[in-house]
């Protein structure tokens, strides 16, 4: 068995050069997904190690948004005052991803890169209308997360691109943000259903809403039909409208962790609860 090649770039430019030269290498950060059961997986031809690449770290205010470096860990996100104050659902999601050891290594860029239907931060990114900044030697671009994941674990990332950062626009002041994960157990669990919502309220009336859900389709999805159904309604009416509209807006499967019927019902309950806490 030949030894894989290994590179640990010290700048984004170097990382992009390496990525362009070796699009078949494993892109590795915290390893919490890619290294699971690694002794039984195919050995990669090379490893491009982005772990602790300084330029991919950090959380910063950028005008009317915050920017989270792709290499930021869940522990860093959960603890950061900018996230805790302005984007609490993301901090809450971070705190429910795996347990402490996973949170110390898992990165937001890794969650986005894999874009599993059960990636816990992804519904939050949808609800917060996040943009993903990606780059290659050809240049950089921004993709809204709703356009980023294009199928089951399929993304818009080109073979020579890297995820650089996540941009979260600061919501207007009257926005309510909520998050709930239903996992296989109370901690260190895979989600059966999870979702996040942001809603702009005028008094008790819903002006607009964004709802992201995970584990209810082949990818994390926005529930646009539900979002439209609740506009102009009081919170209590919105809850009932959402409960009625959710089942048709999702396509959950039955697997060893749960059933489609359960997922459909719980998704409806959760979204209803987002409006009527």
């Amino acid at each position: 068995m030949s030894e894989p090649l290994y590179a640990r770039p010290t700048s984004v430019a170097e990382a992009l050069e390496l990525r362009a030269a070796h699009p078949d290498w494993m892109l590795l950060a915290g390893g919490t997904d890619l290294l699971v059961d690694s002794n039984h997986r195919k050995v990669p031809v090379g490893m491009l190690d982005l772990w602790r690449l300084a330029a991919l770290g950090g959380i910063r205010q950028r005008d009317a948004a915050i920017e989270i470096g792709a290499g930021t860990t869940w522990l860093e996100i959960e603890r950061h005052p900018l996230v805790r104050v302005g984007f609490l659902p993301l901090a809450e999601a971070a705190r429910e991803i795996g347990a402490r050891q996973i949170q110390a290594r898992g990165t937001i860029g890794g969650n986005i890169g894999t874009s599993s239907p059960v990636g816990d931060s992804l519904p939050v990114l949808l609800a917060l209308d996040a943009e993903i900044e990606v780059a290659s030697v050809r240049g950089s671009r921004r993709v809204p997360y709703r356009d980023y994941c294009v199928g089951y674990r399929k993304t818009a990332l080109a073979a020579d691109e890297l995820i650089i950062a996540v941009h979260l626009p600061t919501p207007v002041a009257s926005t309510r943000m909520v998050w709930r994960k239903v996992g296989t157990r109370k901690a260190q669990s895979i989600s059966k259903v999870m979702g996040a919502a942001t809603m702009v309220l005028d008094g008790g009336t819903v002006v607009s809403a964004r709802i992201g859900m995970g584990a209810v389709a082949d990818r994390p999805i926005r529930l646009t039909a539900v979002e439209q159904a609740v506009v102009g309604l009081s919170l209590l009416q919105a809850a009932e409208a959402a409960r009625a509209a959710v089942p048709a807006a999702i396509a959950p499967i039955s697997d060893i962790r749960s059933t489609s019927d359960y997922r459909r019902a719980v998704a409806a309950n959760l979204v209803a609860r987002f409006f009527a806490v």
């Binding site: 590795l28 390893g31 699971v36 347990a99 050891q101």
Partner: peptide, 29 residues
């Protein structure tokens, strides 16, 4: 377990507790 579930392999890496089954050794250089 070899899958980051049980925590029996926990070590501290640069001061944070991590599952050593999910760390490629080159990352520790």
């Amino acid at each position: 377990c070899g899958e980051g579930e049980c925590g029996a392999c926990t070590v501290s890496l640069d001061g944070e507790t991590v599952n050593s089954c999910l760390v490629a050794v080159a990352q520790c250089h």
